[in-house]
Nucleic acid binder design. Structure first.
Length: 273
DNA sequence: CGGTGGACCTGCTGGC
DNA sequence: TGCCAGCAGGTCCACC
């Protein structure tokens, strides 16, 4: 489900509701998500106050005053939302976070590709999830020179490289397709064929599409919803993703769909070279 | 090592 | 209406 803009949208809304609030109780209704949730997690975080809600890549990070950070990934179908009280559990409501201010936060994830873990906050960067991650796309380390160096020896298609979290984090299938369209670069080209000048455009277009999407509250192509269970609006601005056989907004050529490394790529065969 | 393809899950849609 | 194939905003791991 979520790429960087969707996770960031959730983070911003959730932050204002949980910062400074302590967990009173955490209930694991089902532990076998993508990875098994550590049984100790509820004990470690009961009573801990959330100092800050952060994001790295597509991971939500609850930094707490006990020196630990809870790590939550929404996978493909995960959602977080508040409920007034307990009871009436949906069959995919896997984790319930009771907060000291009386709110109940729920994690629901039908496909169970999401997961929940924790680590000592000062050892976060050593955690297996974070050790090999590339730069955040909205930060300075992600620039044309860096991208060019990272691509120039690779035979993999540029589309797969943009989605590779070791190259840059947060860019999933929707935004990889959209940024490549904006940059007029074919998703089929090899990394090593991409010139420095094209990297300039790509870096700029990746940033721009992510920022626009955050401003629109994310993309709800299928079932993404924010913390208030409302859809985002950025799907209205998509130009190629999901547009197979529709006319290119620039040149009216029919948009093509092609499967690359198991994921659908959408592109304009005329505009993108 | 770099790159690809399968695996992990459930649910929804569209075609017959 | 019912069934089945194909599809889905992610990521890890085994294999060549």
């Amino acid at each position: 489900m979520p790429e960087l803009p969707e996770v960031e949208t959730i983070r911003r809304a959730l932050q204002s509701q949980v910062q400074g609030i302590a967990f009173s109780k955490i209930t694991l209704r089902r532990k076998d998500l993508r990875f098994v949730i550590p049984s100790k997690l509820p004990r470690v975080f009961s009573g801990a106050k959330i100092q800050n809600l952060d994001r790295r890549s597509k991971y939500l990070l609850f930094h707490c005053d006990n020196g630990f950070t809870m790590i939550l990934h929404l996978g493909m179908s995960g959602r977080l939302f508040f409920t007034e009280a307990q009871g009436h559990f949906h069959k995919h409501d896997h984790v319930i976070f009771d907060l000291k201010d009386g709110k109940h936060l729920r994690f629901r994830d039908p496909r169970r590709f999401g997961f929940l873990d924790y680590t000592q906050t000062d050892k976060l960067n050593e955690h297996a999830f974070f050790k090999h991650l590339g730069p955040e796309p909205l930060q300075k380390h992600f620039n044309a020179q860096y991208l060019y160096e990272r691509l120039k020896k690779s035979n993999a298609p540029i589309k797969s490289l943009l989605m590779n979290a070791q190259v840059v984090v947060g860019v999933g299938n929707i935004y990889a397709n959209e940024a490549l369209f904006d940059s007029q670069i074919s998703p089929l080209r090899k990394g090593k064929e991409i010139q420095l000048q094209e990297c300039e455009r790509l870096v700029s277009d990746v940033r721009a599409v992510l920022k626009r999407s955050i401003e629109s509250g994310g993309t709800s192509f299928r079932d993404y919803v924010n913390i208030d269970q409302e859809p985002g609006l950025h799907q209205l601005s998509l130009r190629v993703y999901g547009k197979e056989n529709q006319n290119c907004v620039v040149c009216h050529t029919k948009i093509k769909r092609e499967v690359q490394t198991g994921r659908s790529s959408f592109y304009c065969p005329t505009c993108q070279n």
